[in-house]
């Protein structure tokens, strides 16, 4: 069995303590939450942090709460909690759709919302879903909190806006009226990373789309977003034709690469199909039809 190289271990007592430990141990230290992205990389020795700062004891980073017109996800919320949450089921079905297809139930018992975002894997479903939702990431350092729109959070594959002595502490998602959302992923097998995936958040005024958020995973979309397709949908009628057109635009602008999950033309095709399908389902949900 593959095993990690040696490292030091610190159990953070609380948020302030965690931030102090990260600052003290410098850029080669890493926080560990669920560890389900980091530990496999460490076993492969693709990541060799000198110190792990365990933040699993930080209860202040837990909980899914309604906070005015937003829902706050603590960074340490496990995927399984998102999937089981009644609040999520009511307001953010896109997250429920996404969580059903993220890894597997055992991984979801351990992996966290914050950890997924910080891993910044280009195929990460939650990043695409939060981007579609227009979420905001709360980042805390010893100097206090700052917020970064999720669409500015990812700086590239495996790179984020979080400095080595900072922690993501929460994600805030706005609740919008007359809005529905959906997520769909094509995978080679349950638990596999996406061949391609799309999430849509559609706000309606009657039969008109007043706002659309479209997130894409695994297809090289900048910040996990199909911005041109969102733009095209704004003010458009909520019809199959509009959604198909949004899909076509999203397919044109994403930049997938070929791998064993599929060739480029196929992935582009999937983006078209999945954007149209998720927009359609999101609109239906906005209308309360499903």
């Amino acid at each position: 069995m593959q095993v990690p190289a040696t490292f030091g271990y610190e159990l953070a007592p609380d948020l302030a303590g965690a931030l102090a430990l990260l600052a003290r141990h410098g850029p080669d230290a890493r926080p560990i939450a669920g560890g389900h992205s980091l530990l496999p990389m460490m076993k492969l020795r693709l990541a060799e942090p000198t110190v792990l700062v365990d933040i699993n004891g930080l209860t202040e980073l837990g909980g899914i709460t309604v906070d005015g017109d937003a829902i706050r996800f603590g960074a340490m919320v496990r995927h399984a909690e998102v999937l089981d949450s009644a609040v999520v089921a009511e307001h953010l079905p896109i997250l429920r759709d996404a969580e059903r297809v993220i890894a597997d139930p055992l991984v979801r018992n351990r992996g966290t919302v914050g950890g997924s975002l910080c891993q910044a894997d280009p195929s990460e479903d939650l990043s695409a879903a939060f981007s579609a939702l227009g979420a905001t990431v709360v980042i805390t350092s010893r100097d206090g909190e700052r917020t970064v729109p999720v669409r500015e959070f990812h700086r590239g594959p495996y790179e984020t806006a979080v400095a080595h002595d900072e922690l993501v502490t929460a994600v805030r998602v706005p609740i919008r009226p007359a809005t529905g959302s959906a997520y769909e992923k094509v995978e080679r097998r349950t638990g596999d990373w996406a061949v391609a995936a799309a999430g849509a958040v559609v706000s309606l005024d009657g039969h008109t789309v007043v706002r659309a958020g479209i997130g894409l995973a695994a297809v090289g979309a900048e910040h996990f977003v199909a911005a041109e397709a969102e733009e095209a949908l704004r003010g458009a009628p909520a019809t199959a034709e509009s959604f198909a057109e949004a899909g076509r635009i999203a397919a044109e602008h994403c930049r997938p690469t070929a791998d064993q999950r599929g060739p480029v033309d196929y992935k582009r095709h999937l983006v078209g199909v999945l954007v149209a399908r998720t927009c359609h389902r999101a609109a239906a949900r906005a209308r309360g039809e499903v």
């Binding site: 094509v186 061949v195 070929a258 791998d259 064993q260 599929g262 060739p263 999937l270």
Partner: peptide
Amino acid sequence: LTPAAVWSAMQGRPLRTDLAIR
């Protein structure tokens, strides 16, 4: 017959599954 292989076959461009997909 992964989703990609099925779709490629439908396009008349079946994949060569012993080599890397390009």
